[in-house]
Design a protein around this nucleic acid. Sequence first.
DNA 1: TGCGAATAGTTTGACTACCAACAATCATGA
DNA 2: TCATGATTGTTGGTAGTCAAACTATTCGCA
Lengths: 163, 163
Amino acid sequence: MAKSLGKTGPRGARGAAAEETLRLGPLADFIGFHLRLAQEASFQAFARRVRDYKMRPGRFAVLALIGENPGISQTALGRAAGRDKSTLTPALNDLVRRSLVKRRRVASDRRSYALSLTVKGKTLLEELTLHARAHDRMLDELVGLKHKAEFIRTLRRLAMALL
Amino acid sequence: MAKSLGKTGPRGARGAAAEETLRLGPLADFIGFHLRLAQEASFQAFARRVRDYKMRPGRFAVLALIGENPGISQTALGRAAGRDKSTLTPALNDLVRRSLVKRRRVASDRRSYALSLTVKGKTLLEELTLHARAHDRMLDELVGLKHKAEFIRTLRRLAMALL
DNA sequence: TGCGAATAGTTTGACTACCAACAATCATGA
DNA sequence: TCATGATTGTTGGTAGTCAAACTATTCGCA
């Protein structure tokens, strides 16, 4: 696999220039470009791994954040997960429908919900966390354990500063 | 702005635990999670910067890759940009409609197109590249020039290995 | 040569995402 | 108290994305 990233395809007889490797030009030096490719690749790899649970990284993050912060509101959850609140509405509808998350009305502020996991949600979260750890161990190897902490700090710095 | 990332909202009377900062739990150690937040933030910042051109990072990357590799096919372009070929069809339709990209049929393989920039496309690309450089200088500062090369190498390693 | 397999690009359907506009609710201050 | 403004969550519109199915070609090989 991955045998041919960088081949431009079988245009055999054509101008022989960019045949072997694709030229990235200025893109090669842009952090944003590589950030995107890496993120997408990691996303896909995780999605493949937990395909059977019908869970994708975004949903897992939502589940994990609710698990760690029971009673959280949808707006706060959106901020933490880096998603717009309107994105969470259908996602939470789905998780509630699957009996993984509870939406409880808050007496002191009847606009908002207090989100929490059901028992089923907690169980699933634990199982998914195992997969996530395995996935992340793979990333750890690629990043190098020695540099992991620094790498994450850098990513956080980017996320914080650019919000 | 950004005054309150980390507040869980006005649940005042509730259990006082996670009031100040949101708990990330296992997520805090997951590279994938931070990768996603950082990528999203960078993406948004760039999109804001070039909003007036009706261009987003994905389109810019497409334009830049065609500019560097004239004659490239849509499939090869998709591989390089990390997008499915079916995603590129409407994107290229749009770029062609805006007279930025030319689709030329290839005599030796009549299934594929050879993509190239129009003069207008080249001009726009140059202008956008200036913005992209400015954007990336901002990222450079956050990453630290000393670590940039290593940072990009790590991102490439992730993207390559996980494809 | 001719047929089955592979490939380029398109179309369709299902998701996910943002933003803007909205209703319901809450907070503030005159 | 009550009018104004802010906030919570939902809805509707638009756009980007993948995967799978499809058409038109080309390739490989017997």
